[in-house]
Design a binder for these strands. Structure first.
Length: 574
RNA sequence: GAGCCUGUAGCACAGUGGAUAGGGCAACGGCCUUCUAAGCCGUAGGUCGGGGGUUCGAAUCCCUCCAGGCUCGCCA
């Protein structure tokens, strides 16, 4: 049980309302609009009808009925039908600070996920294409969920479901044989592939026979022709080498790169099973699962020309993942354009009698477009992820030259700040919102941004460095005399935020929404900056110094761990 | 046409039943001889898309209309 949950349970244990359960009271507790009012409030309006008493009177009765000795509370007061509970900061400070300072980065760890495997399908890039800003959301959302699941004791499996199948690879093979060469491919990587791919499309406008050649080439690849397979493997290796550089910079990790090609020989068994369950039928020459009963268009499994489709491979992948990992949940971090696809997919699994269909979850996110419209590789208006990262790093290096010219290892720090700014930019809003990408917004380092959090952490670290104390300096409990150093509004707000970390992580997992964490660490950073401005720490009165330094240390731990979970490095200087 | 999503300050967003709707950017005015000013404080800015309903109480729930986005059988 987290500290916040314990506090709620304690409050509810003090209150007795006829015909109202303790659980109901706990769930009714809300944060008051102003922290000065208290930590928790109980609105009494909903009990009025039941008790045939006015809310104001009920609140007053609750307050007078509480026989607590008030060691835990500063005050319990009834105001306008609310009962406000304000915990004594001296009582909770020792508790929170000691948990954080002793557990350090393992604070808010949990074992709730023990023995539970979570498959997370994210990023899922196409072979022979470079990553652009459209890939940013899925990659960093998936990465954040992966780390948070791990922190909560789950066993996450990161899956990059590669787009490595389809006639486009026939086109690439033909194009490469006509215009490509190994040296250029080795030197230029994926952009050399893009170049010949674009050329193929241009040429095929006037020479339609190229398309027949591409189909034939893809057929040879399917049939396992050694030369074709070798070329394809080369394209794949070049693509992965290049995207892995981006993944390293973003700190995302995959346990499996099994993509479409991997499931090529695993679809027949699925189709046969659906056939034998009488779920399939032939419609216009294609094999479908009719879903009209569920107000959905049919799920297409086999095209009229015998080729399989996206849904077929996803079904095979779902079967394979359940068999291989026996997942507790299988999560797809895929753009909302595919809402219907996943709804159909999960329904087909349910119809096939898979009880685990309910554990399949689509986590959709919004589109990225440019100010001039939708991105299109063919029209050439794409913004490559590598370029965005490079520009961000460049800008943070420039800022450092002005603000902190004496800094050593400038480029190393600039990498952490620049990439962190981009990651935070992608994680800070509710994932369902569309994003119109602009360099101006992505490269903003002021206000609620990644660099702001990093900067706040650097401030805290700087104080701790200047103090020059060892770990046992932060030993707890503090005496009342020392805790008086935290007897101010800024400390109280900061402390109450720090104890919320475990509950925040639970919310992120419940809603598959990393922005809850990013907004939380913004709040922590903001609260620390106020505390820092209003209260001397190093030069505090001697009896105040240790408690304030410990609060600073605890804040640093939360900020650094919060950033790590989001996939953002925390530099020690900037 | 149908289904889903979005609509909150000039801009981009938090807030999904509770007290006076909040932070950021931009604007304006302050704060560096003391712990890193990528910071802090203040001012200004709101018919929470419109209308109706439910409720002691609605940005939040229901209905309806409007605007934008996505999707709707052989792409993924």
């Amino acid at each position: 049980m987290s500290i916040v949950e314990e506090k709620k349970a304690y409050i509810s244990s003090l209150i007795k309302i006829d015909n109202v359960s303790n659980i109901e009271i706990q769930e009714s507790l809300i944060p008051p609009p102003d922290p000065e009012l208290g930590d928790f409030a109980l609105p009494c309006f909903k009990f009025a009808k039941l008790l045939k008493t006015s809310p104001v009177k009920i609140a007053e009765n609750i307050v007078s009925s509480i026989t607590d000795d008030h060691t835990m509370f500063d005050k319990i007061v009834a105001i306008n039908g609310y009962v406000n509970f304000k915990f004594n900061i001296r009582a909770s400070a020792n508790r929170v600070l000691s948990e954080i300072v002793t557990q350090k980065s393992t604070y808010a760890n949990s074992s709730e996920g023990m023995g539970r495997t979570i498959c997370i399908d994210y990023s899922s890039i196409n072979i022979a294409k470079l990553m652009h800003i459209g890939h940013l959301s899925t990659t960093v959302i998936g990465g954040a969920l992966y780390r948070i699941y791990k922190k909560l004791g789950y066993n996450p499996i990161g899956i990059n479901h590669l787009g490595d199948w389809g006639t486009q690879f026939g086109k690439l093979i033909v194009a490469f044989k006509l215009w490509g060469n190994i040296e250029k491919l080795t030197n230029d990587g994926v952009s050399a592939l893009t170049e010949i791919y674009v050329k193929f499309h241009a040429e095929s406008e006037t020479k339609p026979e190229l398309l027949d050649m591409a189909r034939a080439a893809f057929k040879r690849l399917e049939d396992g022709d050694p030369e074709s397979v070798q070329l394809f493997e080369l394209f794949k290796k070049i693509t992965l080498d290049e995207v892995n550089k981006v993944y390293d910079r973003l700190h995302v990790h995959f346990d499996s790169y099994n993509g479409e090609a991997f499931y090529n020989d695993k679809m027949d068994v699925v189709i046969n099973e659906l056939d034998s369950l009488n779920l399939t039928e032939i419609s216009d020459g294609a094999k479908i699962v009719d879903l009209s009963k569920y107000d959905m268009p049919p799920c297409l499994l086999v095209r009229s020309d015998g080729a399989t489709l996206y849904a077929t491979r996803d079904l095979a992948a779902a079967y394979y993942r359940k068999r291989t990992y026996d997942f507790y949940k299988c999560i797809y971090v895929v753009a909302y354009q595919q809402n219907l696809h996943f709804k159909q997919l999960f329904k087909v699994l349910e119809l096939a009698g898979k009880t685990w269909a309910k554990d399949m979850i689509h986590v959709p996110f919004g589109m990225v477009s440019l100010e001039e419209g939708a991105m299109s590789t063919r029209r050439g208006n794409v913004i490559l992820l590598m370029d965005v990262l490079s520009k961000a790093v460049e800008k943070s290096a420039e800022i450092m030259t002005v603000k902190n010219p004496a800094l050593k290892d400038k480029m190393e720090i600039a990498e952490k700040i620049g990439v962190g700014a981009i990651t935070f930019f992608a994680l800070n809003n509710n994932r369902i919102k569309d994003i119109v990408f602009s360099y101006d917004k992505a490269l903003s380092f002021d206000g609620e941004t990644g660099p702001y959090i990093q900067y706040t952490n650097v401030r805290a670290l700087s104080i701790l460095r200047n103090l020059g104390v060892s770990d046992d300096y932060f030993s707890i409990p503090f005496t009342d005399d020392e805790l008086a150093g935290l007897d101010n509004k800024e400390s109280a707000i900061l402390l109450s935020l720090l104890e919320k970390m475990p509950d925040i992580l639970t919310q992120v997992i419940e809603k598959f929404e990393p922005s809850i964490l990013s907004r939380y660490i913004i709040d922590v950073a903001k609260a620390f900056n106020r505390f820092y401005l209003e209260n001397r720490i190093m030069n505090a009165e001697t009896n105040y110094r240790r408690a304030r330094a410990t609060l600073t240390y605890a804040t640093h731990i939360i900020l650094e761990e919060g950033l790590r979970l989001l996939g953002i490095d925390a530099p020690t200087e900037m």
